[in-house]
Every structure is written in C-alpha cells, then in structure tokens.
C-alpha cells in the first residue's frame, strides 16, 4: 500500500488548473437553447436553400422543355420553308423565265 502523504505516483497530475469560467445551471440552459435555436436556423436555412434550388431547377427544366419544343418547331418550319412546294411558289421562282438558248462549254 502507498502512504497517504504526497508522493509521485504514476499517471497522477502534479498540478490542478481550476476553470476560470464557470457556468451555472441557468447559463447552461441559455446556452443549450441558443444552440438549439442556432441549429434550427441552420436547418431552416438549408431547407429553404434546397427549396429555392429545387424551384430554380424545375423552372430551368421547364424552360429547357419549352426551348426544345421551340427548336423542334423551328426545325420543322425551316424544313417547310425549304420544301419544293414553297420554292415553287416563292416570288423568286415566279419571277424566273424559262431558259431559251443553252450554250454548252466544250470539254
């Protein structure tokens, strides 16, 4: 057995540092509430951020769908405007006159 008097003992601190800030039960309660409020705000912020991003995403997706549909329609319009029937009825074609005399270049 070790004697009760002060002696160097393995794994025993030699000095004791007293805590300078001491919190009573009310302070601890306030801190806990503050922490909960802080976490709640953080959560709300994330949720609202996520909702905003979701909204932006769905808006952009809707816009992409609309633009794709517009692109498709424009492609069809372009093809129709380049069709033989359209070319035949164009003002340019109407103003053309048939070729009368053709001269072929010698090869």
């Amino acid at each position: 057995m070790y004697p009760s008097t002060s002696r160097l003992v393995r794994n025993q601190n030699l000095t004791r540092v007293e805590a300078r800030v001491q919190a009573g039960p009310i302070s601890v309660s306030f801190m806990l509430i503050a922490l909960v409020v802080l976490l709640s705000l953080l959560y709300l912020n994330q949720v609202s951020k996520s909702s905003t991003l979701n909204y932006r995403l769905s808006t952009l997706e809707a816009k992409r769908t609309t633009l794709q549909a517009e692109k498709e329609q424009l492609r069809i319009d372009a093809a129709r405007l380049q069709s033989i029937a359209e070319a035949r009825n164009s003002q340019v074609a109407q103003a053309m006159t048939p070729v009368q005399n053709v001269s072929y270049a010698q090869r």
Binding site: I76, A79, R80, Q82, S83, I84, A85
Partner: peptide, 8 residues
C-alpha cells in the same frame, strides 16, 4: 410526325 414536303 411532320412531313415538310407534304404530298410530294
């Protein structure tokens, strides 16, 4: 389906 050349 769209057929730009129509009846042709």
């Amino acid at each position: 389906r769209a057929y730009p050349e129509g009846a042709l």
